[in-house]
Amino acid sequence: MQDALLTYGELGLGSRLKRLSDLMMREIHVVYDTCNIEFDPYLFPVFNIIIEHQQVTTTTIQEALQYTQPAITQAIKKLSSKKLISHKVDKQDKRKKLFQLTKKGIALHHELIPLWQIIDQQVKWLTEGSANSLTSHLNFFENQLQKKSLSNRILEEYSKLKKQNENN
């Protein structure tokens, strides 16, 4: 059966992007599970903002990501419950909480760095191209993922990197 979303052209663009986003999140989750890394790919943006800023308020996260406050609060709760982040009260404004990585969060970040580099490399390869429209490029992207899943692409490169590091 033909993929109905393909036949909708630009009218199906939002649905295709959502489907692709969901697929990518599932594939990254497979990678984390395979590598025995307990991390939810949906938490990446908030976790990364905390990494970049070292200490950050929810307002700063919201401005940086343009997420809703409830979405940020939910991510903060999940990261806190996993003991990846902690907070302290701002000395100048006692109403503000400053979020930062815990030792466990720092260790996880260091473990994730090489994997994130490979994920970035593989997604760049899939998204670079000279298509004349976004839908044409989505066709290419989706076709490539049908040929070989994103998780397989990432895990193959990660395995190569691990072997290379073992040989050095």
Rank of each mutant, 00 (worst) to 15 (best):
L155Y: 10
V89P: 06
L108W: 09
L115A: 08
P114D: 04
K147I: 09
N132H: 13
S133M: 08
N132P: 02
R26V: 10
D22Q: 13
N139Y: 14
K18Y: 13
T135A: 10
L20E: 05
L101E: 06
T127F: 08
V31Y: 11
H137C: 07
F39D: 01
G9Y: 11
K82H: 09
H87R: 11
K91R: 15
D3P: 03
P114H: 01
L20R: 08
L101M: 02
S15V: 12
N143C: 12
Q121Y: 07
L84A: 03
K162S: 08
Q121S: 03
Q69K: 13
N139V: 14
I49E: 09
A4M: 12
Y8D: 12
I154Q: 10
L126G: 06
V56A: 01
L145E: 08
K147P: 00
L65A: 05
Q117G: 12
K78T: 09
M1V: 10
A131G: 14
V56E: 00
E38W: 07
I28W: 05
E128Q: 05
S149M: 03
L43V: 00
K162F: 06
K163R: 13
Q69Y: 07
D90W: 07
Q62R: 05
I51H: 10
T60K: 04
Q121E: 13
D3M: 04
S15I: 11
H109L: 00
L150Q: 03
L145T: 09
L5Q: 01
K78W: 04
